[in-house]
Design a protein around this nucleic acid. Structure first.
Length: 545
DNA sequence: GGATGAAGAACTATAGCTTC
DNA sequence: GAAGCTATAGTTCTTCATCC
């Protein structure tokens, strides 16, 4: 005979798990952040302490109950309801505390005033005044309704009241907290709207809400808070959490709270169907190491996702190591001066020149190919007058003409072409001022070289993701430079003709330029061959094609 | 041979933040 | 305040295969 289904109701809960009062002590003292109203034991505080103890006893009784038949399940449901109900007043007052905080929205004077009123109301409600309780419920509902719309009602989840037996006492906390939290950013292209009151609330309550503001960052901090001192956490996160600067507060927080197991498990871009963002697992256990202090340095990711390069793999890695030791280009060699269309893109970038106003050709990233620049396909309304609230940035033509080389921004590796017939370009194009004393064809050979491409794809994690791989200015400034004299000596005279042929997809010319750059970077013939096959593998191409 | 769908390749725009 | 830099649980376009 199949036994009755185990009673799990006391474990299953719902609510806004990132909004709530942190501890029963905070509720008893009406404490919000650093602001505390009740520093002495009040009737409300004493009553809360007693009801929490009663709830703990009931929930312990639940866990000790053996299920033999359906009547046991009914009895457990009654105990569970009793445990829940005895904390009803505490829950209401905790809800009101959160409401006060949302209403005050960072204004400490408003908050203090609200807490003074709540202190009185809490005492009256504790004495069993149903009218006062009704009044408090209405005020709370109103305070928790954001933006004046009933659809945006916050449902605080007070962990210490929902799991009193776990989160009260000297060694409180869960042994393990694991989860795949929702991933959402509150800024950037895929920004999810955020109510200003919640923005302020999370900024006050969470240390991690100071860098790149995301929902998943908040969960990392919440998981760490809910775990006991010896407890562990496991969180599925987007891989950029491991190394982007915006996530430094998250890394700093978790390193100070727990021992982070590195390398993090890396799952690449195919862990979830339909999700392009690469993912990883952050596992942190027990206490931080003795030297554990806030440190926002990148986490080490596990298998990088880079494919192996075959039998000449050691040549490949030695070559990359060698490129690490090369010099870097001048810091001002690269820039991102392109047209910022602001919020007027459809008005200032057109497929045809208009009949009224001044128009000029404008290039986009898609015009740039290795050694080849296509004629611009779009027109820029350069004397467009912005209306109220509109903005954009178009510089003087001379600024755009001052860059002899253009690079495609959306690409897995640097792709550069000479800026012939110079004109305006959008910020999907990056620009190079050239290198002092070096001819443009030699700089093009360097930027388009296999060695630079392989180095870039090895060093820049974003280069390996299918979702919006981008070459960034800081990446270009970090490229290893060849010995220009050696490069000039080997191909200097023929470079202009070779670059022209390379623009026509002449494989021999491309290979000649490529080998010369590797040589000038100090790579051996074997290392160059390894770089060629390695880059082909990383780009998913057939080696030697 | 045209319509439809699947798979793969190629690729942008803009808001927020930092620096000057 | 202007200029420069950076990030984005993706989107659009093209090609190829299959069906009718």
């Amino acid at each position: 005979m199949t036994p009755p289904f185990t009673f799990l109701d006391h474990c299953l809960k719902s609510g806004d798990s990132l909004v709530g009062v942190r501890s029963t002590q905070s509720i008893a003292q009406l404490q919000v952040g650093a602001v505390t109203r009740s520093t002495q034991e009040t009737i409300f505080g004493q009553a809360l302490e007693e009801t929490v103890e009663r709830a703990i006893a009931l929930r312990m009784q639940l866990m000790a109950t053996n299920i033999r038949d359906v009547s046991d399940v009914s009895e457990m449901a009654a105990i569970n309801a009793k445990a829940h109900d005895c904390l009803a007043n505490a829950r209401l007052i905790a809800d009101r505390l959160v409401g006060q905080q949302l209403e005050a929205s960072g204004n400490s004077r408003t908050l203090r005033r609200g807490l003074s009123a709540l202190e009185i109301e809490a005492e009256i409600v504790t004495h069993g005044d149903s009218a006062a309780r009704g009044r408090l419920e209405r005020e709370t509902t109103q305070a928790l309704t954001l933006g004046g719309s009933g659809e945006k009602r916050v449902r605080p989840f007070h962990w210490s009241l929902e799991f009193p037996e776990v989160l009260n006492g000297a060694h409180s906390g869960f042994d393990a907290v694991i989860g795949n939290p929702p991933w959402a950013s509150f800024s950037g292209r895929q920004a999810v709207p955020l109510e200003p009151a919640l923005d302020k609330y999370w900024a006050e309550e969470f240390a991690v809400f100071s860098g790149w503001k995301t929902l998943h960052s908040l969960f990392v901090e919440q998981f760490a808070r809910l775990a006991s001192t010896d407890g562990s956490i496991g969180v599925l996160l987007p891989a950029p959490v491991a190394d982007l600067d915006g996530y430094a507060p998250v890394r700093s927080f978790i390193r100070a709270a727990k021992y982070v197991r590195e390398p993090l498990l890396y799952f690449g871009e195919e862990a979830f169907a339909g999700v392009v963002q690469p993912s990883c697992a952050l596992i942190a256990v027990g206490n931080p190491p003795p030297s554990g202090k806030p440190d926002g340095a990148p986490f080490i990711l596990g298998a990088s996702g880079l494919p192996t390069t075959g039998p000449n793999e050691s040549d490949f890695h030695r070559a990359i190591q060698q490129l690490n030791d090369r010099g870097r280009p001048p810091a001002d060699a690269f820039a991102d001066p392109g047209v910022h269309t602001g919020n007027c893109s459809k008005k200032i970038v057109l497929t045809q020149a208009g009949s009224v106003g001044e128009f000029a050709h404008v290039r986009e990233g898609r015009s740039v190919f290795a050694y080849r620049l296509e004629a611009p396909q779009k027109w820029l309304h350069i004397d467009y007058q912005a209306a109220d609230g509109e903005y954009f940035t178009i510089r003087d033509l001379s600024v755009y003409q001052g860059f002899p080389i253009l690079l495609r921004q959306t690409a897995k590796r640097p792709i550069a072409a000479a800026h012939d017939s110079p004109t305006h370009f959008r910020n999907s194009v990056l620009a190079c001022r050239g290198i002092s004393g070096v001819s443009t064809p030699l700089v093009l050979a360097w930027l388009n070289s296999t060695a630079v491409g392989a180095w870039h794809m090895t060093k820049v994690r974003e280069a390996n993701q299918g979702a919006f791989p981008q070459v960034k200015v800081r990446h270009l400034r970090d490229l290893p430079v060849p010995d220009w004299a050696v490069l000039a000596e080997s191909i200097g005279g023929q470079a202009p003709a070779l670059v022209r042929s390379a623009g026509d997809q002449d494989a021999t010319a491309i290979a000649t330029l490529d080998e010369a750059v590797s040589h000038a970077l100090g790579l051996s013939t074997a290392q160059h061959a390894a770089i060629v096959s390695g880059l082909a593998a990383m780009l998913g191409e057939t080696s030697g094609a």
